[in-house]
Write a protein that binds this DNA or RNA. Structure first.
Lengths: 209, 209
DNA sequence: CCCGAAGTTGACGATCCGTCATGGATCGGT
DNA sequence: ACCGATCCATGACGGATCGTCAACTTCGGG
């Protein structure tokens, strides 16, 4: 029976429809990355993106609702790529040291290895930079807070303000990674060592220059 | 001679021209604050701003080049208001404790007392928030780094990476203040206590819940 | 009172936005 | 191989914003 019956339930279509659709989406995403990197988020327009593509203007809206949404999609790709790694790192942490150093090392190394997308974010207009937190990024924040709360419940962390600690870790991660990428030779290990020492022992235990 | 010659050099005009000019500028700025707070930066348009004003569209461009520029002007007002306070606080610091706690306390108290402008920044579109760093804000960052370097030179701080420490302080200040303002009763002293303990002794010295 | 400068006005062409009727290509079935 | 049904790309369209500019109004000094 099974051999004779085609699979109607599984929508695993492998037709040309699906293929060109995926191609178009990818074309638009690639074009958008280039345009954002070149013009910055603010100056870029939907028309600029579609013009960098053989498609017509209306087609854009079959895939994304707006400029904001495609930007979120690009950001979400990044967030989706790094979130599992961070979570896994923290899950395996047996101590405060491992929790903190694992988080920062993973984050900074990811940023350093992904400088193209990061440029997309930084190179805004002339002097202003824009930071947009998509739902996916916010979900990453929430995961971090959950993991802190779990660690507190397990006695790994003392019963501190998990919300503020999450904010502090995120703030340091973003701001320091920005600085790191502005240096000639970004060194994620150095940045992670700095941030980890700060969180574990405060300023007095920071590595000396 | 002098008595006969009108003062061409001194443009200290007190005429109606100057007055209405200042009034118009202020009207536009106030309207912009309201519009940004209501629609968020992304959705707001120059027309929205000037529509909230008795002036004509062309007049806007006599005062500001673009939406971005007037947004920067608003942000710069805030940065200009807090920068001297922060600098003074740090100048008088005789120890690491004073340096750090003064910085955070001043910053969080300013943010808490200025919730209107802060809403302007936060309430962007639905789920995304936008952070724009104007030249004035960046100058505030630079001041912080300079003060850290001075403190290192004076032996108040150990010889650490001033650039990263500046980034860490700024990141924690922004991110934690954001969280603080989302709570029912924002408590700047509590937030400052948290951040200060983190920087002075690390996670293990954070206040317990 | 009058003239030149300063500043305001609103209309204009250019551009972008998001939609939608049209038409061509693909799919499933015979 | 053929045929309707469906999907989706197309590009033109009405609506809105952009930044400019020539004409007009108001102010300041003589």
């Amino acid at each position: 029976m099974d051999t004779l019956v085609a699979k109607p339930a599984a929508p695993a279509r492998s037709g040309k429809r699906e293929r060109t659709k995926a191609q178009n989406r990818q074309m638009i995403l690639d074009a958008a990355r280039g345009v954002f990197a070149e013009l910055g988020y603010g100056a870029a327009t939907v028309r600029d993106i579609i013009r960098a593509t053989p498609l017509a203007s209306g087609t854009f809206y079959n895939y994304f609702k707006s400029k904001e949404e495609i930007y979120q999609a690009i950001r979400d790709e990044v967030a989706l790529a790094i979130r599992p790694r961070l979570r896994e790192e923290r899950r395996q942490a047996k101590s405060v040291e491992e929790f903190i150093s694992g988080t920062f090392r993973t984050f900074f190394e990811f940023v350093a290895s992904d400088r193209i997308d990061f440029r997309t974010i930084r190179h805004s207009a002339d002097t202003t930079r824009v930071r947009v937190d998509t739902p996916e990024v916010i979900a990453g924040f929430d995961e971090l807070r959950e993991d802190i709360e779990t660690a507190i419940a397990q006695g790994v962390f003392p019963p501190i303000d998990a919300d503020y600690l999450m904010a502090a870790i995120a703030g340091v991660a973003f701001e320091v990674s920005e600085r790191m990428m502005q240096r000639e030779a970004p060194d994620p290990v150095q940045a992670a060592t700095f941030a980890t020492a700060l969180f574990l022992g405060g300023i007095r235990t920071l590595p000396l220059a």
